[in-house]
């Protein structure tokens, strides 16, 4: 851990005392945008495969 850089050093380093600088802005503008979660995994299960198998067999019998 770097003990030499404490909070005071950091505050001293900020350009808050510059004329007309105002409060320092850290974060980008708040402008929310929805990120749509994507579906990547197929939900095929053994039960689905068994169902397909049964359908196939029943059609062949018919």
């Amino acid at each position: 851990m770097d003990q030499r850089l404490n909070a005071k050093d950091f505050e001293d380093a900020l350009p808050c005392d510059a004329p007309d600088s105002g409060p320092l802005r850290w974060a980008p503008p708040e402008a929310p945008l929805a990120m749509q979660k994507q579906v990547l995994e197929t939900r095929t299960s053994w039960a689905d495969l068994a169902l397909v198998g049964r359908l196939f067999l029943s059609r062949r019998k018919a």
Partner: peptide, 21 residues
């Protein structure tokens, strides 16, 4: 903390307040 220190320096040198976050 070192990152914030470097950021403050970057703002001071570039005048990037309100443009660099």
């Amino acid at each position: 903390r070192r990152e914030r220190f470097a950021f403050a320096r970057l703002l001071r040198e570039t005048g990037g307040e309100g443009r660099i976050f």
